[in-house]
């Protein structure tokens, strides 16, 4: 039998080797011991046990996963990413906590629990960072993005993935307000800094940080965020505007609720009245009066150039 600690450690080894194989790095006894923060002897006991279970094999200095090991690794990754998706969609935890919590839960979910979680979330295909979630039989499609630093100045792109490791770099990207699905325009790139715009907001990042953002270049026709937009919360009582888009940060049930209420690109919205306690504000949406809190109205982007006049 194996202990829980051993299970956690071996699953971390599998993930490490899997990542190395994906990135073209070498997984060695050194790197394993380093990542797991254990000493060489412990690492070597661990890997030999795992080799006995036919999860990995040594080729020269390098460790490689067997097919069984690879499947296992994919299931751990699946659990991790599903848990992140769950935290993002259905809980009040903020993004800085997602990764750490998922690192814990990935080792404690049974296959049945993983399946139930996936079902509950509507079998999502991507985690909130844009990483693909492997399916139950280990299939997935890579996000296919390229590093932000590979764009040409002036080029538009959509963020497809934000690397959540190392945590310090990720925290900086979160603090900048960057997440998958937003569109950006690269202004300038030099050895010292990468300058780009998301809407009207300017961002400056060190290239080493910017490399953790993967993007898919957009052709001019594909760019939707060209229209200057402001949050619905900026609309004053009596003013009318048209929805341009919902913020990608608005996810899960909240996003679905908005769409059920008919808040979609093109919808005309009028700010009707505000609660005597200052919040929420009632908006006239498709002839219904809907109360929205300020944090919700912040996630709906509008333009005051109303195209259609339908009330």
């Amino acid at each position: 039998m194996i202990t829980v600690t051993e299970r956690i450690l071996s699953e971390d080894v599998l993930k490490h080797i899997y990542k190395c194989e994906g990135d073209g790095r070498r997984a060695t006894l050194d790197s394993i011991a380093g990542v797991l923060q254990i000493n060489q002897d412990e690492a070597s006991t661990l890997v030999s046990k795992m080799a006995a279970h036919d999860l990995l094999q040594l080729q020269g200095e390098e460790f490689h996963l067997t097919e069984a090991g690879q499947n296992y690794a994919l299931q751990v990754i699946r659990a991790h990413r599903l848990w992140e998706r769950y935290l993002a969609d259905e809980t009040g935890f903020d993004e800085a906590q997602w990764h750490t919590q998922a690192e814990h839960h990935e080792h404690h979910l049974s296959p049945d629990e993983i399946e139930a979680l996936s079902a509950r979330l509507g079998h999502p295909t991507h985690d909130p960072h844009g990483d693909p979630i492997p399916s139950a039989n280990g299939q997935y499609m890579p996000h296919g993005g390229q590093p932000l630093t590979s764009l040409e100045p002036g080029q538009y792109a959509r963020v497809v993935h934000i690397e959540d490791e190392p945590p310090i770099v990720y925290a900086q990207l979160v603090a900048e307000g960057l997440y998958p699905d937003i569109e950006l325009r690269l202004k300038e790139i030099s050895a010292e800094r990468v300058q780009f715009f998301v809407g009207e907001t300017e961002h400056l990042l060190a290239p080493i940080v910017a490399r953790n953002i993967s993007v898919r270049p957009l052709s001019p026709e594909e760019v939707t965020e060209l229209t200057p937009a402001e949050p619905l919360s900026s609309l004053k009582i009596g003013e009318t505007a048209q929805v341009v888009r919902l913020s990608p940060a608005c996810r899960g049930p909240e996003r679905r609720r908005f769409m059920d209420l008919g808040i979609l690109p093109g919808t005309v919205i009028k700010a009707e009245m505000v609660s005597p306690s200052g919040d929420p504000t009632a908006y006239l949406i498709r002839r219904s009066l809907i109360g929205l809190r300020k944090e919700q109205a912040d996630q709906i982007y509008i333009t005051r150039d109303v195209v259609s006049n339908r009330p």
């Binding site: 969609d89 809980t91 009040g92 935890f93 049930p253 009632a282 219904s288 809907i290 109360g291 919700q296």
Partner: peptide
């Protein structure tokens, strides 16, 4: 209840 899901919606019917 920190982690429980939270959404807000309030329709003001005629």
């Amino acid at each position: 209840l920190k982690g429980e899901a939270s959404t807000f919606s309030l329709e003001l019917p005629p």
